[in-house]
Amino acid sequence: MDSSKPQIGKAALWMTGAIASFSSMAIAGRELSVTHDTFEIMFYRSLVGIIVVSLVLTLSGTWHHVTTKRIGLHCVRNAMHFTGQNLWFYAVTVIPLAQVFALEFTQPIWVILLSPLLLGERLTTVRVMSALIGFAGILIVARPGAAPLSTGLITAALSAVFFALTTISTKKLTQFASIGCIMFWLTVIQAVLGLAASGIDGQIALPSAQTAPFLLLVGLAGLLAHYCITNALAIAPATVVVPFDFARLPTIAIVGMILYQEPLDQWTLLGAAVIFSGIFMNVHAENRNRLATLPGHQPNK
């Protein structure tokens, strides 16, 4: 639940776990794309999640934390995440991993812009400037007119919008729901959505000896990533937590170069750096404002 004093250091550690999890999931998602469509990946990922979450709830004796309170918000939150995650899985199969992550990094920009509408947070001048700098970074990565605006670029950018909406709704849920409750409904609701979507064409590819390990990895990594993010959001503001995720870019760029011979695109790296600078400016201002409100704080001369 929310703490009266943000715990930035602990939130950073939780986000480190999220970074490793999301990077692993990107690799597994690309390997699975040969056999499974994105809906099937989401379905099997959610089945793994249901087993793990149910086991944790049983061993910890916390099934009583799982309630249907605000189930509508749980459904909305997971429908938005389901949409964003499917767009993301598609993007990792058609454009370089570093490009996907660079565009996904615009998630904090959307959090900044949407938080005043959905969380009642104030839209300050610094936040507006941060958003403008972030969009400049998007233009550098996408380079409309200089490079073809592919479906992969569009889906990667759209996934960031849905992930931002997911982040905001998660922040709302942490005010009255336990992490176990949030994770349980995450897996159950998205399993239903995944089954319905993957079965529309009347065909659902079953796991094979080759795909089963990657499906297990996607399920565990996705669950761990959300567990880490939910813990981080429970102890620090969304506009502070999300920027820690930027450490993923150099990691995934190197992985893409080694595993898939993807070149280190200078425009992608430059655009991501511009996006990061905008978000960092906002984070710095947020931290400075919080320090100024602490009792006995002496401003720098």
Rank of each mutant, 00 (worst) to 15 (best):
L206W: 14
V53K: 13
L259I: 08
A234M: 06
P213L: 06
T166V: 10
I235V: 13
A146K: 15
A26R: 06
I112F: 04
H297S: 00
F184Y: 14
L139P: 11
V111I: 15
A272K: 03
H36P: 00
G49N: 04
Q298S: 00
P144Y: 02
R70G: 07
I138M: 11
R77Y: 09
M25I: 13
E286N: 02
F244Q: 04
G145P: 14
R122A: 00
L249P: 06
L13M: 14
A205M: 10
I182R: 06
Q203C: 08
I179N: 14
W63Y: 08
S178C: 08
L249F: 10
Q85P: 02
D37A: 13
I8C: 01
L57D: 07
P148G: 01
A136I: 15
P108D: 07
P116S: 12
L294Q: 00
A285I: 01
N287L: 01
P263E: 09
H284T: 11
I41Y: 10
G271I: 05
S21V: 05
F163T: 09
G222P: 06
F135Q: 03
G271V: 09
V283E: 06
L153N: 03
L103N: 03
Y260P: 04
N287R: 12
A91T: 14
V188N: 05
E104F: 13
A98N: 05
M129H: 13
L113M: 14
K171W: 00
F184G: 08
L223W: 04
A164Q: 10
Q7W: 02
V92R: 11
A11Y: 08
G194R: 11
A191V: 04
P6M: 03
N231Y: 12
L217C: 10
V128F: 07
A196V: 13
T170S: 12
V255M: 14
K5D: 00
Y44M: 01
Q7Y: 09
I252R: 08
L114E: 12
L291K: 02
V126T: 13
I168R: 07
T124H: 03
H74T: 02
I258Y: 05
Q99P: 12
L224H: 12
A160M: 08
A177T: 09
F163N: 07
H226G: 15
A232T: 03
D37M: 12
H74S: 07
V241M: 04
N287E: 01
I258G: 06
